[in-house]
């Protein structure tokens, strides 16, 4: 996947109403990201402590160099930990884990029961799910760099990332910029956004996953009116919201995601589109 340039379009959701400022509690975007990261860490720690007495599970690994059985820790060990038992090649190329031949599992999600395990790289025989995870992760990272790229004076409210049109080779993230209603980015600004993206992907940051309750998710995204609007419908099925974290950026997605941002490679941010259709819905 490395050294493949792709076209990205980044959508701008324009919301001219200043309604969202009332819930902002005067937090700048950077502070909100920091706060969310802190809450995420606390919750992660709490969930790890909740595991209590460590139980062992048997993981039957299938693949190169040979099939074998690993004894791992229940609710603590991840497929990534399993990959570390094999080689650097396994760590670097595995994007997703396949449990029992059917369930696609994140590399950084703890295993909950004994299972068979296969690693999925980008060139497996049936890469559809891996491809989807790839585009999803690209969107997540785009959101992360959109939230850090602007100055403190420009509030950035992330909306969501719709499923990309894979055939176009591009991915998008809807962002609400209340103070920049008619922003037309110059070539230099787009270049800066892309540079921010590449900086993030070069750090090879792991993409972490956590399931949290609806209340905590609402608390974390209290400064973001779009996300708080989405959370109840997401949590409707089982009361849980799945969060993904890269660096300090926390976002909602159903997943799965690829293992780390280094697998994304080079990209370029090519366009910012103005979205007006959604605007009315928001008002």
């Amino acid at each position: 996947m490395k050294q493949h340039s792709m076209r990205i379009s980044k959508s701008l959701l324009l919301n001219n109403s200043t309604k969202c400022f009332s819930t902002l509690r005067c937090l700048s975007t950077a502070e909100a990201v920091e706060r969310r990261n802190h809450l995420y860490k606390l919750e992660k720690k709490r969930q790890l402590e909740k595991v209590g007495r460590i139980e062992k599970i048997e993981v039957n690994y299938k693949g190169v160099p040979k099939d074998c059985t690993l004894v791992m820790n229940k609710d603590i060990s991840t497929p990534y930990d399993c990959a570390k038992h094999f080689s650097e090649w396994h760590i670097e190329t595995s994007a997703l884990a396949l449990l029992d031949g059917t369930i696609h599992w994140d590399m950084h999600r703890p295993l909950t029961e004994s299972c068979t395990l296969e690693f999925q790289s980008f060139n497996v025989a049936e890469p559809q799910q891996v491809n989807k995870a790839f585009w999803r992760s690209c969107c997540l990272v785009l959101g992360a760099c959109a939230s850090v790229a602007f100055k403190d004076t420009v509030p950035v409210v992330l909306h969501s990332f719709p499923g990309p049109d894979i055939r176009s080779g591009s991915f998008i993230y809807d962002v609400d910029l209340p103070t920049l209603p008619d922003w037309q980015p110059s070539a230099q600004e787009l270049h800066t956004l892309a540079a921010e993206y590449i900086k993030l992907s070069r750090r090879k940051l792991p993409i972490d996953r956590l399931d949290v309750s609806e209340e905590l998710a609402l608390e974390m995204f209290v400064d973001n009116p779009h996300k708080t609007g989405q959370i109840p419908s997401i949590a409707k099925t089982n009361g849980k919201v799945t969060l993904y974290k890269i660096d300090k950026h926390v976002d909602i997605s159903k997943g799965p995601m690829i293992s780390n941002s280094g697998q994304i490679g080079k990209v370029a941010v090519t366009a910012v589109h103005k979205l007006t259709g959604e605007c009315k819905v928001q008002k």
């Binding site: 493949h4 792709m6 497996v124 890469p127 894979i166 055939r167 080779g169």
Partner: peptide, 17 residues
């Protein structure tokens, strides 16, 4: 890689498009 002709591979999807 024995799947380089697999049309579902990321690169092949983009090339086809």
């Amino acid at each position: 890689n024995k799947h380089s002709n697999n049309r579902y591979l990321l690169q092949n999807v983009l090339l086809d498009a």
